[in-house]
Amino acid sequence: MITLHGFAASNYYNIVKHALLYKGIPFQEDLLYAGSDDLLTVSPVGKVPAITMPDGFNLSESNVICDFLEETYPEKPLYPTDAAERATVRQIMKIAELYFELPSRRLIPYVFSGTQAPNAVKEEVRQVLGRGIIAMNRLCQFSPWIAGEQFTMADIYVHHVNTIVNAFGSTQLEWDVLAEVDGMKEWNKAMSKTDIAKSVQADSQANMPEFMQHVKALIQAANAK
């Protein structure tokens, strides 16, 4: 059985977990937080998520894991058979990561510390998010799924990216970023109502108090140095 290493409060962890559940692949979860010595034994840089296959093969990085799962377990495919359509799915995922998720992550330290990000940081984040909004408006179809008629990895990936955009971007910037992409809020709401998404979100919320205690302990340790 596959072992999924990481913690449920992580959106990257939940991308892989969602894919595993959608494909019906048996797996077990191993609670590990980023940077732990145990995680370093299965992830080269100690990042979440990582998986261990039944034969002992370890793999990290969410998009790499998802591609590996698709190739290893082709049942219930999450990528189109057409090469151009498959590339479009990956393009949506990459743009969501670079222009939605990563800039929003710059605001995490301020959210966790209960402070407001400096205006210069907010403006930089706004500019990058703005580029993402333009690109996503051009690429996303929402007919009914993000890349067209087929449910794909992009639906899973962007839905969990949006948890970061909503939690950190919107609160710090007072900006409903998803509303800027025509059809995205309605699609995101529909995604959140699927059985798998509800299950993943419930696990994420249950893990959040312990995760926040972990973050608090890290901050205290850093301040003590």
Rank of each mutant, 00 (worst) to 15 (best):
E149K: 11
A120D: 15
L20R: 07
L31H: 08
A117N: 07
A135R: 06
N223I: 14
A154F: 02
N223A: 13
K122N: 11
Q141T: 11
E210L: 12
I65R: 01
H18G: 06
V161T: 12
V89D: 02
A117W: 02
T72M: 07
A224S: 09
L32C: 09
H214F: 15
N188P: 08
V16G: 08
I134D: 14
I25G: 00
T163I: 14
Y33W: 05
Y33R: 00
S60L: 07
P103H: 02
V177W: 08
N119C: 13
P109R: 04
L4K: 08
V64G: 10
I95M: 00
S143F: 09
Q91H: 10
E70S: 03
T152K: 07
F100C: 05
V158N: 01
G130C: 08
G132M: 04
P54K: 06
I146V: 12
S143C: 10
W145G: 06
G183M: 08
D67Q: 09
M184D: 02
W175K: 01
V48R: 03
I164T: 15
P80L: 08
L107P: 02
Q172F: 05
Y110N: 09
L40R: 13
M153L: 13
I219G: 07
A206I: 07
N223F: 11
A217E: 13
H160M: 10
V42F: 08
Q213G: 15
F142C: 11
T115G: 07
P44W: 00
Q91P: 01
E180H: 05
L20F: 11
G130I: 02
V121I: 15
V42R: 01
V215R: 10
Q127D: 13
Y22N: 10
V125E: 04
D195A: 15
D155Y: 02
A117M: 07
D30I: 13
I65H: 04
I134C: 11
E101F: 11
P209E: 00
M191A: 13
T52S: 09
L173I: 07
I133Y: 02
N14W: 00
K225E: 04
Y33I: 02
M136V: 10
V89E: 00
R90W: 03
V200T: 05
K193D: 15
L139Y: 06
P77L: 02
D38G: 02
D155C: 03
M212R: 03
K17N: 09
N63M: 12
K193F: 12
S143G: 05
E70F: 06
N58M: 05
A202D: 04
L178C: 14
D203Q: 12
A147H: 04
F27A: 04
A8Q: 11
Q150Y: 03
I2F: 09
F100T: 06
V200A: 02
R90M: 03
E61V: 09
